[in-house]
Design a protein around this nucleic acid. Sequence first.
DNA 1: CTTAAATGTAAAGTTTGTTTTACATTTGAA
DNA 2: TTCAAATGTAAAACAAACTTTACATTTAAG
Lengths: 66, 66
Amino acid sequence: MKNTIHVERAIRRITQADLAAAVGVSRQTINALEAAKYVPSVVLAMKIANYFEKPVEAIFELGEED
Amino acid sequence: MKNTIHVERAIRRITQADLAAAVGVSRQTINALEAAKYVPSVVLAMKIANYFEKPVEAIFELGEED
DNA sequence: CTTAAATGTAAAGTTTGTTTTACATTTGAA
DNA sequence: TTCAAATGTAAAACAAACTTTACATTTAAG
């Protein structure tokens, strides 16, 4: 599981804390997601995708591990 | 969080056990998902969406609760 | 250079996803 | 109607998501 949260965030010049607040999780959760430390729930993934106005698949990608 | 797994499965006349095997989870997990007993990980959601050859958003929908 | 904001990280704890086993009920085909 | 396959459900156990607190490091603006 890979994701482009870091990139999307950089494009919009948004802070981890801002995104966290926008989607209703802690800043550490966003930080851990960017570091690919774990896989989010679909709900969180969809909230993040919605926030960036992109489909889930544009931000999250299945890897070999999965 | 709502989903149309039951419908997609009915269309393809696929069994819960078949889908479970195809995406690598237990049959009970599929059953519980159809009953909306819990929210899957994005990985599982994407595997299911891939299996049905549809985008995640076509199968999973955020609800008020989320 | 200094300082504040942003980021990385870590440990402990809570909650929730997922598995396993097991059994009861429904459904559909013979 | 009968029997097997499919589904519903439930409890215990385990794994993984997510929170909170707390601190160290990096980055950027003044």
